[in-house]
Design a protein around this nucleic acid. Sequence first.
DNA 1: CCGGCTTGCAGAATCGCTTCTTCAGCCCCG
DNA 2: CGGGGCTGAAGAAGCGATTCTGCAAGCCGG
Lengths: 362, 362
Amino acid sequence: MSRSRGRRLARAGIRDVAAAAGVSITTVSDALNGKGRLPEATRRHVREVADRLGYRPSAAARTLRTGKSGLIGLTVTTYGDEPFTFTEFAYFAEMARAASSAALARGYALVILPASTRQSPYDVWSNVALDGTVVIDPSDRDPVVAELVRQGIPVVSDGRPCGDLPVAAWVDNDHEAAVTGLLDHLAAAGARRIGLLTGTSTDTYTRLSTSAYLQWCERRGQTPVYEAYPAHDPCAGAVAADRLLARPDRPDAVYGLFDPNGTDLLAAARRYGLRVPEDLLLVCCSESAVYAATDPPVTTLSLKPGRIGTTVVQLLIDAIEGVGGGRPVQRIMPTDLIVRASSQRRRPRTTISSPRSPEQHS
Amino acid sequence: MSRSRGRRLARAGIRDVAAAAGVSITTVSDALNGKGRLPEATRRHVREVADRLGYRPSAAARTLRTGKSGLIGLTVTTYGDEPFTFTEFAYFAEMARAASSAALARGYALVILPASTRQSPYDVWSNVALDGTVVIDPSDRDPVVAELVRQGIPVVSDGRPCGDLPVAAWVDNDHEAAVTGLLDHLAAAGARRIGLLTGTSTDTYTRLSTSAYLQWCERRGQTPVYEAYPAHDPCAGAVAADRLLARPDRPDAVYGLFDPNGTDLLAAARRYGLRVPEDLLLVCCSESAVYAATDPPVTTLSLKPGRIGTTVVQLLIDAIEGVGGGRPVQRIMPTDLIVRASSQRRRPRTTISSPRSPEQHS
DNA sequence: CCGGCTTGCAGAATCGCTTCTTCAGCCCCG
DNA sequence: CGGGGCTGAAGAAGCGATTCTGCAAGCCGG
């Protein structure tokens, strides 16, 4: 060992293993990685010595040499200091859980990164070697995505990209089908005039959902009844819900696009003395288990974030490993309408909120 | 540029910047990192050229050279394929969110890793260079922790370590104070005989909580009334809740140690025709928002996972950066009792989330 | 008995950066 | 005018792996 200069307590390196095993570092590397032409005896010997020394290859060195880090970024839209708003939290938590699980299963680990980037090349983003990145709801010509693509790092997005972002793939829910199906459900439950609580922003989710609503109305010959509000403002939702129910052409059923809309609408209905579901049918889009326990339980549209997370990671790893050609892929995922009392005129068979697992999942 | 052999489309390296700026790579490095003795003019020039070329330093190379990766591991206890059980999900989600936020604020990123490790040195764990790791609820002589410590990687745990795990620091709730306070609260609400729904496992949370309960009972001269069940089994909770309420010495108040216990107990109470809170006072430990909407809303003990996550990351980064001496730190965090209808004999001033009078319906 | 093929392994060149060391000018002052 | 101190910048040695190439034996057939 010519190089152990003082650092007695340092972790064993490949040279230490080589020295201890009486072979060259090439042999150690080959033996441990199953490469090269080595008899099984040598491999075993090297493995034993490596084990004995507690040898761990340096991830940094390997990454530097091979160009693969085994790390996948997951962007989090940050609002000010806090990652994601509360309204997105349940969705994100479940999505991240599934994504992490899927990544781990294929030998990758997930790194949580902010969607923003400081201009300087010295923020977290450039301090971590990424094999690829999952971007949640990239904004129109997202600078982070652009930069990543420029660096040749595969990017897969959750939510179809707004502009012409050159992502390697994207996954999104079938929002049109979801809204159409849910409106049909409400109509079947007896709704005559279905209202919509929507957002003022122009993200694809809001756009697609709203236009699906408008088209459905047109097909059904119903005049649209909707209120839009800035979805990021936690207070505006309650106000908009109130406005919607205060209209002269008050709807007898409402779909709320955002997570808090269920409680917003429930509260508004109470203020106007409307019973749910007798006087007002209710559905909102949410992943929160809270709506299983409200009074009455609220029918929710679940975007199945778990499935999205899993899929998005699979596609990303495929892109990283060059599986299935380099052509961009898009995957449209179905949603789930979780029917509860708020959207059924007839009482469901039991109204007991299932005694099990308040956190429901995937 | 002597080395650009073919790879025309490759990302710009530091040598490309040096060549383009007409300086040495030393100068580039120093200029970009604010080191060395360079006039501002040179720095600016180098920065401009680097910008123009879209230069991004290689994280792997930097990590290899400096030994710092800016990455912090966050272990996830996996059960089979899935990370964490459902009962822990709400806690973990919030904890991870806060931890991620805190890490990002200090220039580190969080990597989600499984608590288990395959024996081979070639699992995710050794494929990522970690500056430190947060371990959630390490088990007695956790092999992962042992291995990390052996490698000289600082480990901070959420939950006091069971054995003599040599963690650099740990953070935990004041479980004794929490249980004592909550029992006092129940007693003040009129409870005469408080029961406990606890676990059979020997983790510190269960142990501390249970012994605090027993001590409280002894001080108060109450004979303990409790049922223990394997907390990891999602079905056993309902059964145990039933057993507890079926006892001849039926308690008139119950504290459930685990997240689903609230609904378990609510369901069991219903089966026995017990009204909550009139006949039975209820508290459970949970982070889930569901309990704000149950009928009646259930008082919960929140462990404040956000605060835990933030603290744990702060301590870890302090340890990594050598701030505040190397001595092990332990931090005891307070809990929050979120008082709702289920633990108050007198109706709270407003029945916030329960619009209808509680005696209605199921 | 010899040339060529296979086998088993070692040497050495990277990967891209940080940083220690060196060094050439230049200024200033004795 | 010469040397010491300072400034500005370059050289080069790693960091710890992977991997391409090379080379000495051993074995075989001709």
